[in-house]
């Protein structure tokens, strides 16, 4: 059974059919990519899966369970983490604190125990800090742990966002254009990183514009165009698909 299953998903914005009858599955442990030109409905698809947007019709199943209609924080609780195309750092917080927010679901101190700094809270806080530092180390940005996140370079913010999502210990990670705004060197770096994330046992679904990245790392690729799925196959086959070549390179 697929870990994540998207079934006949539709999303209309007024007269615009942003996502139209899209179905595909993501198997546990794989890296699956959704590609397509700008405006193909990739980010909308992500927002539907993560609960940020309600769908017009169709189903999204995670481990066989319907997750449509759940709020984003409930979707997160199930083990689904996501990043954003336009990085959403928590302003006014350091890189480390940003990652520590990612440990929210792995900890439980509430208002009262936090205010009185009870022993349980202190222990929990230490673990949150250690785990978060470890992740910053994994992403090789431990040296900027105490720097305000929004003042970091773009590539570093991307890394903080990755660490923040990994801190949630998700089963599946949804990456929305992880290479957006990065140069070729950084893009290759992100590619290596995504492979490493998969090696940690985390399934990855990514939406991407950058073909080179996707071809290198994905196990399978779904191609969207104007909200519709036009192909789903292995990277090598997608590269040969005349339909895909047409939408990417234009008609001859």
């Amino acid at each position: 059974m697929d870990l994540l299953q998207v079934d006949k998903l539709h999303k209309r914005f007024g007269g615009l059919q942003a996502v139209s009858d899209v179905s595909f599955g993501v198997r546990s442990g794989q890296i699956k990519a959704v590609i397509g030109p700008n405006g193909a409905g990739k980010t909308t698809l992500f927002n539907l899966i993560s609960g940020a947007l309600p769908s017009s019709s169709g189903r999204v199943l995670f481990k066989g369970q319907e997750i449509q209609g759940k709020k984003p924080h409930q979707v997160a609780q199930l083990g689904i983490a996501r990043t954003y195309q336009n990085i959403k750092m928590f302003s006014g917080m350091t890189a480390l604190e940003n990652v520590m927010v990612g440990r929210h679901l792995q900890s439980r101190s509430g208002f009262v125990s936090s205010m009185f700094n009870l022993p349980g809270t202190r222990g929990e806080e230490r673990l949150i800090r250690e785990k978060s530092m470890e992740l910053l180390g994994l992403l090789e940005i431990a040296d900027v742990a105490h720097v305000s996140a929004t003042s970091l370079a773009f590539g570093q913010q991307r890394a903080v966002e990755f660490a923040r999502a990994l801190a949630m210990e998700p089963e599946i990670l949804l990456l929305d254009e992880p290479a957006a705004g990065l140069n070729m060197y950084e893009t290759a770096e992100v590619g290596r990183l995504i492979s490493r994330i998969r090696d940690l046992g985390i399934t990855v679904l990514l939406v991407e514009h950058d073909m080179s990245l996707v071809m290198d790392i994905s196990d399978e690729i779904v191609v969207l165009s104007f909200g519709q799925k036009i192909a789903e196959n292995l990277p090598a086959a997608i590269q040969q698909d005349p339909e895909v070549i047409k939408i990417y390179l234009g008609e001859e």
């Binding site: 940020a52 997160a76 302003s91 006014g92 990612g102």
Partner: peptide
């Protein structure tokens, strides 16, 4: 305060 949307996605109710 920083990003309500991203906080939500981190599981913050």
């Amino acid at each position: 305060h920083g990003s309500s949307e991203a906080a939500d996605a981190m599981g913050v109710n």
